[in-house]
Design a protein around this nucleic acid. Structure first.
Length: 492
RNA sequence: GGCCCCAUGGUCUAGCGGUUAGGACACCACUCUUUCAAGGUGGUAACCCGGGUUCGAUUCCCGGUGGGGUCACCA
């Protein structure tokens, strides 16, 4: 009985580009299903398109999966009992299956050229007929076949599709989906260059790799009857299918480059954490069933099930991803955030130089990031958020300057702040605040009257961590120097 | 165009015959606060339409409409 065995699933991308966000979600669902069921997650590279497949893409996809934390039990690099895991290295398997089909007559050679086929398709389209193969070579006699071959004509192998009856896809998320066989034409299983087509190769591989469940995007649903037919022709049992809803762009169309970031790589570059992307993607088409959204991966693994996968296509929403990302930036281990922020800080050599010069070293950087991380939503915002702790020659934010510094009493106020802070010897958060409060009391004003101008004077901004945190982080010397700078500028 | 899938606020979703239709993002107030975030409170906002079935349909069935997918020597 199939479902008593361990489940085996695979993610089978074609290496023609980066790891797409949709591909990542498909990989994630497969991975979650495998982990939840204690099954195996296989990575298989479908590189039968010689034109478009590249090794860079293979590397990029694997890097993307690893970055997301989706490890595979079998596949490139790690190997496995059912390899090789590149389709281009499994040609003998396709060849064997194909000749078995050709032998029995379940498949036949077709000598039509791509040009002829394209012309017929075009004509059919113009006449409003469904564009399907017309069976031109379906009934060639052995003599005709031999003659064509002798003439050196290139040919493909087509499956002889039954023209009556129906084929039903048993889908774990959609139920039974039935197709009339007449709507399916004699599709190609082996291209004229000897390479298998997708609908053929994946059936052969899934069989040999003992894949039990095929989880993939809904766009493959209409391909599935073809794959079932191939399996039937070969006398094989098909795996169980589950077609998960697609991810659409905000304008409801299929996701493409013109919709901004679509690859995992790009999201990484924009400062999103893998934890956040995983959490967000898991929620796109799946829900735990209760009012929970932020979930650690282990929890998702524990609760994931195909029964709770949605049937509706989902539009991805960067705003919500951003919200989740902000959550993880706040909640994750500080060292983790430090490490994740590093590449972004390194992206600004000027800032890096200042950080290196800082005697406070990594401890101070850690404290600063701890102070600002509650306020950023992406890692990309961190360099700017920490910059004024290191850079003395910052400009005053226009609005803040006008509102708090360009006021008559500002100069005198800052002078008083300067004097009071000068008396603080141990420049801690508590001590600076105490000094501040006593000045506030002495002047009989509201706290903000002193705090706002001071903040602009020492940070250049109207927002950020608590003022006393900032001062403590900055230290007495820098705090006073910055106050002096502001006083100086106002005095002139 | 044929075939297939889908349909709860702008978005992600819960719901599996009887609910004041729940949550989250976003948005708007208020609150907290030294600012900004975060947090808290409240608010605007949804069952595509029409027929059935049923005592009763968001929920089941059919039709329509809408959206998506697919019809390649791409996967």
């Amino acid at each position: 009985m199939k479902n008593l065995d361990r489940i085996r699933v695979r993610f089978a991308p074609s290496p023609t580009g980066m790891l797409h966000i949709g591909g990542a979600r498909t990989a994630l669902f497969n991975w979650l299903f495998a982990r939840n069921q204690q099954g195996s997650f296989i990575l298989r590279i479908e590189d039968t398109d010689r034109e478009r497949s590249t090794n860079e893409a293979v590397q990029a996809i694997m890097a993307g999966l690893r970055w997301l934390g989706l490890d595979w039990d079998e596949g490139p690099d790690v190997g496995g009992e059912h390899g090789p895991y590149f389709q281009s290295e499994r040609l003998d398997l396709y060849q064997a299956a194909a000749s078995a089909l050709a032998q029995s007559g379940a498949a036949y050679p077709c000598f039509c050229t791509p040009e002829e086929l394209a012309a017929k398709r075009e004509q059919a389209r113009r006449e409003g007929r469904p564009p399907r193969y017309d069976g031109q070579c379906r009934n060639l006699t052995p003599e005709e076949v031999e003659r064509e071959k002798a003439n050196g004509h290139r040919f493909v192998l087509r499956l002889r599709v039954p023209q009556e009856g129906q084929t039903t896809v048993c889908d774990l998320v959609r139920g039974d989906v039935t197709f009339d066989n007449v709507v399916i034409d004699d599709f190609i299983i082996i291209k004229s260059d000897g390479m298998p087509t997708y609908n053929f190769a994946c059936v052969v591989d899934d069989y040999h790799m003992q894949v039990t469940h095929v989880l993939r995007a809904e766009e493959h649903l209409s391909n599935t009857p073809k794959q079932i037919m191939v399996a039937q022709a070969l006398g094989w049992e098909s795996p169980t299918f589950a077609h998960v809803p697609m991810i659409l762009a905000p304008d409801r169309s299929k996701l493409s480059k013109r919709h901004g970031a679509t690859s995992v790589e790009e999201f990484r570059e924009q400062g999103f954490l893998p934890e956040a992307i995983i959490n967000y993607l898991a929620l796109l088409g799946w829900s735990p069933g209760e009012d929970r959204e932020i979930m650690p991966l282990e929890q998702i693994v524990k609760e994931f099930s195909l029964e709770r996968v949605a049937t509706t296509a989902a539009i991805y929403d960067v705003k919500k991803l951003t919200w989740i990302n902000g959550h993880y930036i706040r909640a994750l281990d500080l060292e983790r955030i430090m490490a994740a922020a590093e590449p972004f800080i390194n992206g600004e050599p000027g800032l890096v130089k200042l950080i290196k010069k800082d005697p406070g070293g990594k401890d101070r950087l850690r404290a600063i990031i701890a102070a600002v991380r509650d306020r950023v939503k992406t890692l990309a915002e961190i360099p700017d958020a920490i910059s004024y702790f290191y850079r003395d020659d910052f400009a005053y934010e226009e609005k803040g300057y006008r509102k708090y510094l360009a006021q008559e009493e500002a100069l005198a106020l800052l002078q008083k702040v300067y004097d009071v802070l000068s008396t603080v010897t141990d420049f801690t958060m508590e001590n600076t605040e105490a000094a501040f409060r006593s000045l506030i009391a002495a002047l009989d004003v509201k706290g903000g009257v002193l705090i706002h101008p001071t903040r602009v004077a020492i940070t250049g901004r109207t927002f950020g961590p608590g003022l006393f945190d900032v001062m403590a982080l900055l230290g007495k010397k820098k705090t006073l120097a910055r106050l002096a700078r502001a006083i100086n500028e106002l005095a002139n």
